[in-house]
Design a protein around this nucleic acid. Structure first.
Length: 465
RNA sequence: GCCCUCAUCGUCUAUCGGUUAGGACAUGGGAUUCUCAAUCCUAAAAGCGGGGUUCGAUUCCCCGUGGGGGCACCA
């Protein structure tokens, strides 16, 4: 049994998206599971639509997600290999050689300036109603595809097809097959959208006299809203977007694994080592999966929650540093490091993602924070907020701010003394210092903000009513 | 239109002929709590329809329906 060699073969014609990432992942997992080789091949034969920017994005995204490639273009520690070059734009001579082989074998011919692949069999003409033209068909037996996921699939490929365009550029089907042969690819794991193309590919393998590799067509990811498969234009489709939003790559990878694969039991959040160990082609589903951003967000929260404090602080700082338009975020970055850390520690167990941080912690870093009008009306319209504020101001002036517990006990004592509940002070104090009704515990907020700031904010609110 | 493919809660899925059809996200309720989350408990929620095969079908087969994909000198 020769070692497994799989490849991910994207085209740099657009932003790297969820669907591509999952295809890459399923290949990468299979290589890692079998101890095989993961190849990155760049299919950049479409000169019109390619761009270096999108190419770089492929490298960056794969690297960010932790999918290192053993062979392919050099990038960081990934790449290299003896089957290069790994960009199709640099493999022109190889394609010429293979086309020459086909010509020599009588399996290709020239027509209208293009080169066509020749199917073997009796020829006849028929009018194609759909395409509104007469086409030449060939009587051939069905092509049989033994798919690792779908089982046996038969398809009739009964028309010659172009393999080199009249402008001299080889088409996808040709280069794809040639490269897979030349690179010794053993398993082709790709989206189900290629299943219909596979009969062409098998015909080409036959033309080259090469036994086709194993095929595994994975289900597609459907867009969350509306019909059809997910494309790079859809909401939430771009990998770079999750990176910018501060998602954890491990969470995204874990989520992506579960879209079309599962370990066979109820486990969902799993270490990548366990996924690699349990992952296999027969475990992949046959039906398409709909993307669910809520579930992704939940997965991200699970991962975020277990990050060590230092890591969370670093993640927070990294995310905030990219929010150049956000005043609170910028102010947070220039704040005292110890203070910054304390604030982030309060936020860590409460947020689903670091992207919530600017809104969740803004008032810790700027005094001109906005106040939620609805919350203000509700809080200020209940009981006697003016009296509570005055009492809080007096309380803050002398209270022991050394610990959350000290503040809590003192505040509770004050409430008891006035015959009121903790909540009567909590809501109005929260409004004064944060402008909202959500956030960390009021005692922790007091302690971290400090006596001065708390006092100022309480007085400001009192003056405003 | 032709070809291929798929089909379990709203969504992701478990079940490899016999289960009270399980879990997760989302949703409702409750507990906890200084708010909000988190957490725990709980509720509601599914085998597309019709034929077979079988003692017995969600599971196997066929038809239909519905979804998805493909039918280029794009990849």
């Amino acid at each position: 049994m020769s070692p497994v060699r799989v490849r991910f073969a994207p085209s740099p014609t657009g932003f790297f998206h969820i669907g591509s990432a999952r295809t890459a992942l399923f290949n990468w997992l299979y290589a890692r599971h079998t101890g095989g080789v993961f190849i990155l091949r760049i299919e950049d034969t479409d000169k019109e639509r390619n761009s270096e920017q999108f190419l770089t994005l492929i490298y960056e995204s794969l690297t960010w997600l932790g999918m290192n490639w053993d062979e392919g273009p050099k990038y960081g520690t990934s790449g290299g290999g003896a089957y290069g070059p790994y960009r199709q734009s640099e493999r022109g001579e190889i394609y010429k050689d293979y086309v020459a082989k086909l010509m020599a074998a009588g399996r290709a011919y020239e027509k209208d300036g293009a080169i066509w692949f020749k199917l073997l069999g009796e020829r006849y003409e028929v009018f194609d109603e759909h395409r509104k033209k007469t086409v030449t068909k060939v009587k051939v037996p069905p092509v049989v595809i033994e798919d690792q996921i779908r089982g046996r699939v038969e398809r009739v490929e009964d028309e010659d097809f172009v393999i080199v365009r009249s402008d001299g550029n080889p088409v996808f089907h040709l280069v794809n097959v040639v490269d897979d042969i030349a690179m010794n690819v053993t398993h082709i794991i790709r989206g189900e959208d290629h299943l219909s193309n596979t009969s062409k590919h098998v015909a080409l393998y036959d033309g080259f006299g090469v036994k086709p590799p194993a095929f595994a067509h994975i289900p597609l990811i459907l867009k969350q809203n509306g019909p059809g498969k997910m494309s790079k234009r859809d909401q939430g489709a771009l990998i770079a977007e999750y990176q910018n939003r501060g998602y954890l790559p491990e969470a995204l990878v874990n989520f992506l694994c579960l879209l079309g694969w599962n370990p066979g039991d109820d486990r969902e959040k799993m270490f990548i080592e366990d996924i690699i160990r349990l992952y296999d082609l027969p475990g992949i589903n046959q039906s398409n999966a709909r993307f669910d951003d809520k579930k992704l967000a939940h997965m991200n929260m699970l991962y975020l929650l277990e990050q060590p404090a230092d890591t969370f602080v670093a993640l927070a700082r990294n995310f905030l540093s990219k929010q150049t338009e956000n005043v609170a975020a910028q102010s947070a970055l220039s704040a005292d490091a110890a203070y910054f850390r304390e604030v982030m520690m309060l936020a860590h167990p409460k947020v689903k993602g670091v992207e919530e941080l600017p809104a969740y912690t803004g008032y810790f870093f700027i005094d001109a924070f906005s106040t939620d009008a609805k919350v203000r009306d509700k809080v200020m319209g209940k009981g006697d907020p003016k009296a509570r504020l005055a009492e809080l101001i007096a309380f803050v002036a002398t209270a022991d701010f050394s610990s959350d517990l000290a503040i809590e006990e003192a505040l509770k004592a004050l409430a008891t003394q006035r015959g009121l509940g903790f909540g009567d002070y909590q809501s109005v104090a929260r409004l004064a210092v944060s402008g909202t009704n959500v956030g960390p515990s009021i005692t922790a907020m007091f302690r971290v903000l400090g006596r001065e700031r708390v006092s100022q904010r309480l007085q400001k609110l009192l003056a405003a009513v």
